[in-house]
Design a protein around this nucleic acid. Structure first.
Lengths: 342, 342
DNA sequence: CACAGAACTTACAACGTTGCACTCGCGGCT
DNA sequence: AGCCGCGAGTGCAACGTTGTAAGTTCTGTG
């Protein structure tokens, strides 16, 4: 049975409120009183009851993080970054998994009672799309991540997908590659990482005057390693010539790497490969993978900061008239490694 | 401003307590009253305030999960499993990172005020050791994971390290390997994964009458990919002959794989490799990695179940006399893949 | 030495929920 | 008729905290 303010107050012979004042570093407490209270706190091992405080103040110090699955490395690393960023503001993170792109579950998540003890939510959907935009107009602080929804009613932190993909493609072009396959296309997608990154790819080709060839765009519904491997095997089997590969994320690129090696293709001599995300793992693959760091740390830090500001009420809530929801773009960085060495 | 029991009660013309009774499916409510209350709840969009409920009942429905880092794949996958298991019992998971084996932070975690709004903790230390055993005698429900502390005052869910490592080694021996290197030894460790798995390794050797050679035991303080690669490069450079490798975890084995391939060693022809953990990734490496599934799903499910039971008070708290803290061992499974193909 | 004003301290009421003890009315049993 | 038991519903207190307003004690000044 943990000690309460009452217990401390009784022991220190002061009122319960004075103890509260000491705990909160209120100025007007006489030094000797403060001493006495602190001693009592120490003796009883008193720790404030956060639940009660939460009830009283309407804050819990907990933020939610809803993402598809922790077993996808990108999201595990994102969660790691978010937790670290939250810790710096002494917020704690409650993680909800929505499954790999399950639109229904994502929508359900937004009104889950489980969010009740959360002050706000960082939300990274994969299944919802532009058409679901209005569902983001929720009665609590919300920060949106990802590439599925733009211009929605919530603040949005995301990466420079088009620019980063253009840089990745340009890098392959600079290495003299002209037939660059892309793995991970989503054909029926109205908006998302695939669409944006593909746009960057096409822009880079256009800049360089290299013709676009639809045959080189390999679809992959899921972005897991075996999807990358399968797509690459298909391409090899089809006998379509190519000398570069742009995996729309690292996992796909690593899968492709494997399929290429199985087939005896030399990397980067015969085919150069670029990925996207800068997963930890890309530093250790064989060969190490050239990739784009989309600014994961910055995204996490920004998302937590913006959410904290919304919670503090420093800015008007998006619903109010006045300022529109904002969009934040993290800086990216091309990381050259062995898979595209000259 | 969300609706409260008061609002619903006023609208339905009943007492606040009757609304509470309806919400809790209390038997003795007349059907028509129940209807009226449910209608009011729906109209106002009432959702119980979990914080208030938590204050009153002492439960929050949140469990803590403290682990080293989510960016370590094993822990990301463990967290995934724990969250899924918790969801089935409608518990929500708050994740705390203690850093990769930081003993001080782990100890601090155990008395963190951030745990206040948690009903109990699943704790996976990496830095604490047998000597810190007594620190696990905490005034809240605690379930211990991992291999650092045995026989402590808390219920413990873990894997059959020795048996599984023996099986992995035996598998290499059955493939005709006689000089099996081990990567990941911790020389000064009193207790932990390294110690236990090495014990299994020695037992298998002894069974097969194969002599133990200290030269084949490669230390690796951290269990990251580059540690595995470095250890393997050292072994190759030393010119010590070997025909099998047992990575004490998958990450080390994958790093070793890479170093072997760099050196032009053929796998499994020249050297067969086994890992430990069954990370998702081992299905997609080149070659795919033979490994041991230590029963991660079962560990997560058991940990959540045991913690839930402790919270419910179904069993006496470990502190009380009567039953001693229990130890649960998950079943393991050897998964044969390409890296040890005959 | 009275008194304003600051410094310090306190009582009380919430926050939204639930456990407990209670009331009320009805039907059945003795 | 009197009593019991039970179903249905209620009122109050409490969980531990904090904001507000008000109370008390100091300090320095005229």
């Amino acid at each position: 049975m943990p000690a309460t303010l009452h217990d401390v107050a009784a022991l220190a012979n002061v009122s319960i409120k004075t103890v509260s004042n000491v705990v909160h570093d209120y100025k007007h407490v006489r030094p000797d009183t403060r001493e006495r209270v602190l001693a009592a706190i120490k003796e009883l091992g008193y720790r404030p009851n956060i639940t009660a405080r939460g009830l009283r103040s309407g804050r819990t110090g907990v933020i939610g993080l809803a993402l598809p699955e922790l077993s996808l490395s990108y999201f595990a690393e994102l969660a790691d970054s978010v937790i670290r960023a939250a810790e710096k503001r002494s917020l704690v993170v409650l993680i909800e998994q929505t499954g790999g792109g399950d639109r229904e579950r994502e929508i359900a998540m937004l009104s889950s009672p489980r969010l009740q003890l959360t002050d706000g939510l960082i939300f990274s959907p994969l299944g919802m799309g532009m058409a679901d935009r209005d569902l983001l107009d929720v009665p609590y602080p919300l920060v949106l991540l990802g590439e599925r929804i733009f211009g929605g009613p919530a603040d949005h932190v995301t990466m420079r997908n088009v620019d980063a993909a253009r840089a990745a493609t340009r890098h392959l072009l600079e290495r003299g590659r002209r037939r660059i396959a892309v793995i991970g296309g989503h054909e029926d997608e109205d908006m998302g990482s695939a669409t944006l990154r593909l746009r960057g790819y096409r822009e880079a080709l256009a800049e360089a005057g290299v013709p676009f060839d639809q045959e080189l765009i390999l679809p992959a519904r899921e972005w897991h390693r075996h999807d990358g491997a399968r797509a690459m095997r298909d391409l090899l089997a089809a006998g379509i010539p190519f000398d570069g590969v742009f995996g729309l994320n690292d996992t796909l690129a690593l899968g492709a790497l494997r399929a290429l090696q199985e087939a005896g293709v030399r990397i980067p001599d015969d085919v150069a490969v670029v990925g996207f995300d800068d997963l930890d793992e890309t530093q250790y693959s064989l060969p190490t993978l050239t990739t784009v760091d989309p600014g994961r740390e910055e995204i996490a830090a920004t998302a937590v900061r913006v959410l904290a500001e919304l919670i503090e009420g420093g800015r008007r809530a998006p619903g109010d008239d006045g300022d529109r929801p904002r969009e934040y773009l993290a800086d990216f960085r091309l990381i050259e490694r062995e898979s595209t060495a000259p």
